[in-house]
């Protein structure tokens, strides 16, 4: 309830500032008003090109993020279980991790034959490390008494891995997925602004070049909504995967 009120106040202040073209160091002269944005949104909703932009971005997220999960989760689980693997892979991770995914853009364009692939690659990179690090963390904090209990009940190596290490790490893995999804969007939007054709990040940047100021705000809001929706989807998935209530 209070949330709705604060949102309403936010929009009202926005309306006031833009309608009056307020200037106090920060300039609201060219900033579109909520009304204008709404009008553009209705227009965009009827324009299939806008839908294409959204679809392109979502597809890139889906590919990049899914790929990152499929590689990082098993890798993290195995690294957590086998020390040798950890000692081989960890140094590489530590060196490449501090490089933001956006810094990879020029390199990615050189590496991959198509633009599309390099953008997916950037998205992949952005979400890869949060997922890997959290999976590792999850493996490191598995309660050893549960492992011993399983062995006492006759569980062999593979069963212990499947029945204890994996479910015990799931809450931390989902933390990684949530963080990874956030970083994936950050990386995607940046990559689309720099090198894209299509995509909601490209749409937002292009609006600026084409002096379509209302579309800038529309793009921003769309990005926010998509980010919110995808982190909600991850939470939902977490609830389904962990019915015992670890994902509160």
């Amino acid at each position: 309830m209070l949330g709705l009120v604060s949102l309403a106040v936010f929009i009202a202040v926005w309306q006031l500032l833009t309608v009056n073209h307020a200037i106090f160091y920060v300039r609201f002269t060219n900033v579109p008003s909520p009304e204008e944005v709404l009008a553009r949104a209705i227009l965009a909703a009827h324009n299939p090109v806008f839908g294409d932009h959204i679809w392109m971005s979502c597809r890139r997220i889906l590919y990049g993020f899914t790929l990152a999960s499929v590689v990082a989760i098993p890798l993290g689980l195995l690294m957590g279980r086998f020390r040798i693997l950890r000692e081989i892979v960890f140094p590489i991770c530590e060196v490449t991790r501090p490089i933001p995914a956006i810094a990879w853009v020029p390199m990615a364009i050189m590496l991959w034959p198509t633009n599309e692939e390099s953008i997916v690659f950037i998205t992949f990179l952005g979400s890869f490390f949060p997922i890997l690090i959290n999976t590792l963390q999850g493996m490191a904090t598995v309660d050893p008494v549960l492992v011993r209990a399983a062995r006492c009940l006759g569980a062999k190596e593979a069963s212990v891995f499947r029945e204890v290490y994996l479910p015990a790490s799931l809450p931390q893995i989902f933390t990684g997925l949530t963080v990874g999804m956030g970083v994936a969007w950050v990386s995607l939007i940046a990559a689309e602004m720099i090198s894209g054709q299509f995509g909601i990040g490209y749409f937002t940047w292009e609006a600026y070049s084409l002096v379509q100021y209302s579309d800038i705000a529309l793009g921003m809001i769309t990005i926010g909504v998509l980010g919110l929706a995808s982190s909600f989807a991850i939470r939902l998935l977490g609830r389904l995967a962990m019915p015992w209530g670890a994902a509160r």
């Binding site: 549960l146 011993r148 209990a149 399983a150 062995r151 009940l153 006759g154 799931l170 015992w244």
Partner: peptide, 28 residues
């Protein structure tokens, strides 16, 4: 090595949190 022939109960609670009571009992 460990075996289901020798049951062990630990001081710390050691039920699998991701399994229901019955699934825990069924584990062995």
């Amino acid at each position: 090595g460990p075996s289901a022939d020798r049951g062990m109960i630990f001081q710390q609670y050691s039920l699998f949190p991701w399994k229901t009571v019955r699934e825990n009992v069924e584990f062995g």
